[in-house]
């Protein structure tokens, strides 16, 4: 069930073009205001970092197409996570994304009996549809921009996933995300409810010996706009705890997102990922570099 990232990216790029058919020649690129497409979330689509938002990736407006690639690195006490991938935004309406995550246990792998440098790999294919509202223009309404989405995740370490109590090596998350820019307060707020079975977002598989049912989880971000290039804020993401061998904690972060220009942006954060696979208090640095059009 492994899907190479190259294939996934090609799928993400080709599908919207196929949908447009003859009108593809009229598509514009660019036009979005700085940072109003969010930054790349860890799972590949537009968001704040740990949280997925209701905005669509890329710099395009409803008249065009845009996209973004990201490379993200998280270094916490006993693990590292590398993620890279891309997202395509189509008419500021549909977003397709593909991301690969490598969860590297490093020296911790030996302590877990997996072997030094044991790495869980996960591929995430996402689709998001904006259904309501406009995060930027609707400043005279309370209504946020609302999107619905799904993320298909497949983990390449099925045997280990099953050995620790995980029930599946792949799964689908479904979410509703609402994002609002409050220009009068220079704030951006976002919240999402996610139905998921994922253990550590899928890095440790899906469902567990304790529970194999979908559970609703919350993820949210709040940020202050300090300049048109800089947003600082925090995020919170609740997670289920399906595995008996190790409890799973909620995640949180404090972030700064900086748009160097319309093409390149950087996110840096201090993350607290709680306990992961019996190793406690996983805190550290999150850095993500993004380039888009």
């Amino acid at each position: 069930m492994k899907l190479p990232v190259a294939t996934a990216l090609a799928w993400a790029l080709i599908t919207p073009l196929a949908i447009t058919g003859a009108s593809a020649a009229e598509l514009q690129t660019g036009g979005k205001l700085l940072l109003t497409g969010g930054v790349s979330a860890l799972e590949g689509g537009a968001g704040g970092g740990l949280a997925t938002w209701g905005v669509i990736a890329g710099n395009e407006t409803r008249d065009g197409i845009g996209g973004k690639v990201h490379a993200t690195f998280i270094d916490v006490s006993d693990y590292t996570l590398r993620a890279y991938g891309g997202a395509v935004g189509f008419h500021d309406r549909v977003e397709l994304s593909a991301t690969r995550q490598d969860f590297d246990t490093g020296p911790t792998g030996a302590k877990l009996g997996l072997g030094k440098g044991f790495t869980f790999k996960q591929t995430i294919l996402g689709a998001k549809l904006r259904v309501l509202g406009d995060a930027v223009y609707d400043q005279d309404r309370w209504l946020p921009q609302v999107a619905i989405g799904a993320q298909y995740k497949t983990n390449d370490q099925g045997d280990i996933v099953h050995a620790v109590g995980g029930q599946h090596d792949s799964g689908v998350d479904y979410y509703v995300a609402a994002t609002k820019l409050l220009l009068n307060q220079s704030l951006v707020l976002s919240g999402a409810v996610r139905a998921t079975k994922a253990n550590q977002t899928g890095l440790l598989g899906f469902g567990g010996d304790k529970s194999d049912r979908y559970k609703a989880q919350f993820e949210g971000s709040a940020g202050v706009l300090l300049s048109k290039r800089l947003v600082v804020g925090g995020e919170y993401r609740s997670k289920p705890s399906n595995l008996g061998f190790a409890k799973e904690d909620d995640w949180m972060d404090l972030f700064a997102a900086y748009a160097i220009n319309k093409t390149v942006s950087v996110t840096a954060a201090y993350v607290d990922l709680g306990d992961i696979a019996t190793f406690r208090n996983q805190r550290g640095l999150y850095v993500s570099l993004q380039a888009g059009f």
Binding site: Q28, K32, L33, T61, D63, G64
Partner: peptide, 8 residues
């Protein structure tokens, strides 16, 4: 006028 024009 397009969104892109408006944003410009």
């Amino acid at each position: 006028v397009t969104d892109k024009d408006f944003n410009a």
